[in-house]
Write a protein that binds this DNA or RNA. Sequence first.
DNA 1: CGACCCCTTGATTAGCCTCAACAACCGTGG
DNA 2: CCACGGTTGTTGAGGCTAATCAAGGGGTCG
Lengths: 251, 251
Amino acid sequence: MVRAGGKTLGGSCLAKRLAHYVTLSDAERAALAKIEEHERTYKRGTVIRQEHDPARELLVVEKGWLHSFVILDNGSRQITRLHFPGDIAGVSGLAFEKSSDCVVAVTDAVVAPFDKSKFTEIFAQHPRLAALMFALTVAERVSIADRLAAIGRTSARARVALMICKIFTRLRLVSGGDLTEIQIPLTQEDIGDTIGLTAVHVNRMMRELATDGLIERSGGTIRILDAKRLAAEANFIDRYAGIDTSWLPRV
Amino acid sequence: MVRAGGKTLGGSCLAKRLAHYVTLSDAERAALAKIEEHERTYKRGTVIRQEHDPARELLVVEKGWLHSFVILDNGSRQITRLHFPGDIAGVSGLAFEKSSDCVVAVTDAVVAPFDKSKFTEIFAQHPRLAALMFALTVAERVSIADRLAAIGRTSARARVALMICKIFTRLRLVSGGDLTEIQIPLTQEDIGDTIGLTAVHVNRMMRELATDGLIERSGGTIRILDAKRLAAEANFIDRYAGIDTSWLPRV
DNA sequence: CGACCCCTTGATTAGCCTCAACAACCGTGG
DNA sequence: CCACGGTTGTTGAGGCTAATCAAGGGGTCG
């Protein structure tokens, strides 16, 4: 929301995201611009990074959707995270030398890869940025824990509802608008692999939600009809609404 | 509650943990010592922090076990994280003003609470420490994602096996030793609430693992008999073994 | 000593998975 | 332009895993 007028942010999705929470200084802006210097384009379905690949690079999503997943020994897949524009994918590269998951382009996508040494500079020279990114990573962790609770302790129907709520909320962060209707590029199998269900059962649950008047479906788009009931059924809490920036260092 | 204590047991569990990964400078050591200045003792079962409480304080575990959990609308509980000595609990306080989960002492425990403003200093003055803690937080996120995958996509038996593997591995980080036998202070209900099962089914799976010769139980202690098979069944990966410190800023 | 918690085991049930078949849609190449 | 294979969505039938319900035993603490 906060945004210096006049000056355009260009393709700097990351800066745009962070500017939601603090007013960036020129120096900070420059540091972030260096992160997003290079861009790569991927076609829908491309494997951007394989599990066990060296993980020197992190990936800022500029355009499109990515997701990360792991394949278990029994052959099944668990999608661990969806990545939208402004997100950083492959953050696990900061902890490990090899990628802990596989990153794939869900739609045609534009990605800005950068070496993790860029984070060295951020931490050394821009503590506020580092702290903010830490806070956002923590928020993400909590968001994953929410999904963990959903998979561990709620019904299939509630999990599907939660997934829909989360996608809409996170996309609103990016688009800014109201956004009650979205063209979702995920297959029902993708959705199932995210919330621990089979594609067949995802289908049934979505139909239920539709016949009960919570959502409306046509083609690949989903419209939310009764956001309140949907959120209630899902135990949904918006984790990105109120990030606490009070403790961030001064610039 | 407040422990008026002269020289307690080394006190600095956090420093000890971080020293596994880097050689701490004197200044860093001092900064960490300031974090663990005050200690509080809690009795087994005490609620240390309630969900929705103000979350200004983070908690370094000095001694004992804690866990964090959420209670869902349907009344069920999901334990999101176990906390062992050297861990920081309540990290979500860095992202939110109010606690996103409830923190409870599983055993009698000694905790060093500190205000999140301490993190402001760390980020501003000790970038390497900040970066290391970031890396460890990322590793923790991956570890939670592993559990997510287990709950979403593996059998009850595999989940129980995973939980055992994780507990042993994380405790080895603390104790250092070989450690094939542990007195586990968790009830079977606790275990179930961690991995998305009922206490009854946890019981059956543990018995299965025992009769199959993977573990041995007596009283509350568990001994691992066949670590290899156990890890294989659990899809276990040790996420704390190889933290990449190459990108950390110089001191 | 009684109350309570926890573990254990059995019987039954329910929710989700598996298997299967078909329809709708898409991009591709002839 | 249409024919085609492949992918995705949809729906039905039946099976299996884990939940639920229930009851008894052992240990611990007040």
